[in-house]
Nucleic acid binder design. Sequence first.
DNA 1: GTACTAGTTGTACTATCGTTCAAGTTATCT
DNA 2: AGATAACTTGAACGATAGTACAACTAGTAC
Lengths: 193, 193
Amino acid sequence: MGDDSEHIDGRKARGNRRRAEIIDATLAVVTRDGAAGVTHRTVAKQAGITTSLSTYYFATLDDLLVAALSSVADTYTTRIRQIIDGSEDKLRGLAELIVQSAGPGRDHALAERELSSLAARRPALAPVARRWRENVGELAATLTDDPEAVAALVAASDGLCTAILIDNAPADPDYVHRILARAIHTQPAGAVQ
Amino acid sequence: MGDDSEHIDGRKARGNRRRAEIIDATLAVVTRDGAAGVTHRTVAKQAGITTSLSTYYFATLDDLLVAALSSVADTYTTRIRQIIDGSEDKLRGLAELIVQSAGPGRDHALAERELSSLAARRPALAPVARRWRENVGELAATLTDDPEAVAALVAASDGLCTAILIDNAPADPDYVHRILARAIHTQPAGAVQ
DNA sequence: GTACTAGTTGTACTATCGTTCAAGTTATCT
DNA sequence: AGATAACTTGAACGATAGTACAACTAGTAC
């Protein structure tokens, strides 16, 4: 051991990098063609590798989808945790995160949604698909002690994302913030500066 | 013309019946195997007909999926309209409708959700997928004049359905009712009779 | 160096897919 | 009855799917 850190090209590192590349390619395919478009062949072509290499890292298509969903879920977990730990106005941070479903983050949000819908039929995906809601609930728990208010905020966040993604609802941070505030029952603008 | 109504076996009636049978078979397949399991062959087998007959009525798979989604959407539209037109406590009626996503209506709700998710990528499905939200919004409009409260109720309804379907959240009508009431900002029990 | 193992490739097998089509059947029309 | 059009069938074509597998390359360990 004692290998200098220049030597990043070990087999293990290479393997991990490939793995990540394949997952990224999978998300790109989901973004472009939907979850139905994910096959070993399309993913491999997207990643610029051979089909068999995709099956080498993810023996079955399900493995690949689970890994892809986990990856997006991780991203959202990180972002929400940043809001919980670092933001002054957590509700505003959440509103801004939700609004991003309309802009450049739309593809990402759509992919996450599409993969989550697979969870209803594949038990392996269920805990991963639950994470987004759990994270929002955790954020809500820092704002209120009322468990019903927490549930209301989670439901509102979810519904607002749907509205923006499917319904092309207005993605105005203030608007979203007001609806979120209504859910946790903090009067929206009553005492705002 | 002038045919007695016993003669229900005209070509036209037969065709419409077949059409409905195929759509029902499609929903059964979606319920059993998910939207990804819908092929002309699986649908035909489910309906007990030949593959080519399925393509006769629905030339392309997309046509079939559009028709299936329209069918479920119609069901929900009818139910919500019954609540709007006939129910004393409309909010309570909505709560009960939402809660049905947990019981025997789970398959139906799941199928609707799965088909709706296809709308993000198939423009033809978008207006149909929007109907559920529009109907809830219409119901909300009979309860308040505040457009933001309407949006909040729609978002809450949607989020609650997700919670019940994906998250196995408690499907208690009172609980759901309280969260809905919070959304439109009618104090839940404060001034209740 | 030699042995070993992770990574990688090309090919191929089998299954199923959407869709087409020519032919056969049945109800309606005149 | 004869013509017409809706309905129904069985078979087939080309494309693509998941997956398996033997061979090849290249880092790692001894």
